[in-house]
């Protein structure tokens, strides 16, 4: 799934990075626990989360997660946007809950991790 399709499906808007980014997202992971994110082994994933702080961006930087979906209308802070742009992470904001975002993306073919 391309970033543009993810945005369309979740009625989202891009907060950082390029919406035309040609990353192919294959799997998704829903979590608010950064320690959990740091144990991931996959690379072509989107992290679906309700967390919106700078540590989130640092964590996905270390875990090589290319795309993050911020749920429930939690806006990305300017610090988050700057850091995401610097590192090259795509940040998408949506008004969907994590539950709904997970449901919609699962039905549209994204796979779980393990």
């Amino acid at each position: 799934m391309k970033v543009s399709e993810l945005i369309k499906l979740t009625e989202g808007r891009i907060a950082a990075g390029n919406p035309e980014e040609q990353i192919n997202i294959e799997r998704a992971f829903s979590s608010d626990l950064m320690s959990d994110v740091l144990t991931l082994d996959d690379h072509h994933i989107v992290l679906i989360t309700g967390l919106a702080n700078v540590q989130l961006i640092r964590t996905v930087e270390m875990a090589d997660v290319p795309v993050v979906l911020l749920c429930r209308n939690k806006p990305a802070t300017p610090e988050m946007v700057n850091l995401a742009n610097e590192i090259g992470i795509v940040l998408v904001e949506t008004h969907f809950s994590i539950f709904r975002a997970s449901g919609v993306l699962y039905q549209n073919g994204l796979k779980p991790l393990y």
Partner: peptide, 16 residues
Amino acid sequence: DMETFEIAGKIYKEFE
């Protein structure tokens, strides 16, 4: 045993 994404993904369908 499922991950959050998978179980949420499956259950969501029931309440859509």
